[in-house]
C-alpha cells in the first residue's frame, strides 16, 4: 500500500464523513505537539551542550522522538489536508467547529496543566532532591540514618507523585474528551433525527459535568 492514510475515507468528495473534521483537528494537534516536543528537545540539547547520546540518556530519547516526529509530520499534514475535505462536506450536516475547537482547547489545557503539576511536584520535593544531588556530587552520604530514611521516603514519594500526576492527567484528558465526544453526538442527533422522534438511538447514560 503506497499511502497508509488512504483507508481513512476522506477521498470521496461530496460524501460526508462525520469523523473527518475531528480527525483533521486531532491530527493537526498531534503534529503541533510533536513539533513542540522536537523544539523542546533541540533546546535541551543546546542548553546541555551535548554530543552524541547513549540509549540510556533521556535527552537522547527525546531526540529520537523528535526525529520520529519529523518523519511523521508530513504524513500527518497529508492526513489533515484530506480530512479537511471531509470536514467541509460534513459542515453541510452539522456545524461541529465549536466542538473541534473545544477539543483542541482541552488538549492544550491538559498539556499546560500537566507541566504545571510536574513543576509543583518538583517544587514540593526540591529540598530533598537538592540535598541528594549535593551529597552525591560531594561523594558523601548523610550521616544521620534517620535523615537518610526520611530522604528515601521523600524521593520515593516524588517518583510516585510524578507517576500519579501522569495517570491522573491522562484520565482527566480522557474524561474531558469524552464530554466533547458526547456534545458531538448530541449535535449529530439533533441534526439527523426526524423532527418528531421521541427517543434518540443512543441516549446518553451519564450526565455531563458542567
Amino acid at each position: 500500500m503506497s499511502d497508509p492514510g488512504g483507508g481513512l475515507g476522506a477521498d470521496r468528495p461530496g460524501q460526508s464523513d462525520p469523523a473527518a473534521g475531528l480527525v483533521a483537528a486531532l491530527a493537526s494537534l498531534v503534529g503541533q505537539g510533536l513539533a513542540a516536543w522536537g523544539t523542546a528537545a533541540e533546546t535541551l540539547f543546546s542548553a546541555a551542550g551535548r554530543g552524541p547520546q547513549t540509549p540510556q540518556d533521556p535527552l537522547g530519547t527525546i531526540a529520537d522522538m523528535a526525529a520520529v516526529a519529523g518523519t511523521a509530520l508530513p504524513g500527518l499534514a497529508r492526513l489533515a489536508g484530506r480530512a479537511e475535505e471531509g470536514q467541509a462536506a460534513f459542515a453541510q450536516v452539522a456545524d461541529l467547529s465549536p466542538a473541534i475547537a473545544q477539543a483542541c482547547m482541552v488538549a492544550a489545557a491538559s498539556a499546560l496543566r500537566y507541566g504545571r503539576t510536574i513543576a509543583e511536584i518538583m517544587g514540593r520535593h526540591q529540598a530533598g532532591l537538592l540535598q541528594a544531588a549535593m551529597e552525591r556530587g560531594a561523594g558523601e552520604t548523610a550521616a544521620d540514618p534517620s535523615a537518610q530514611r526520611a530522604l528515601a521516603d521523600d524521593l520515593r514519594a516524588y517518583l510516585r507523585e510524578i507517576g500519579d500526576a501522569a495517570a491522573q492527567e491522562a484520565r482527566r484528558l480522557q474524561h474531558e474528551l469524552e464530554m466533547v465526544g458526547e456534545s458531538i453526538a448530541v449535535v449529530i442527533d439533533e441534526a439527523t433525527s426526524p423532527p418528531h422522534a421521541s427517543s434518540r438511538p443512543h441516549p446518553r447514560r451519564h450526565q455531563v459535568k458542567e
Binding site: R149, A152, D153, R156, A157, R160
Partner: peptide, 9 residues
C-alpha cells in the same frame, strides 16, 4: 521490617 511510608502506602 525497616520499611518506609511509601511501603505503608
Amino acid at each position: 521490617q525497616m520499611l518506609g511510608v511509601e511501603d505503608w502506602r
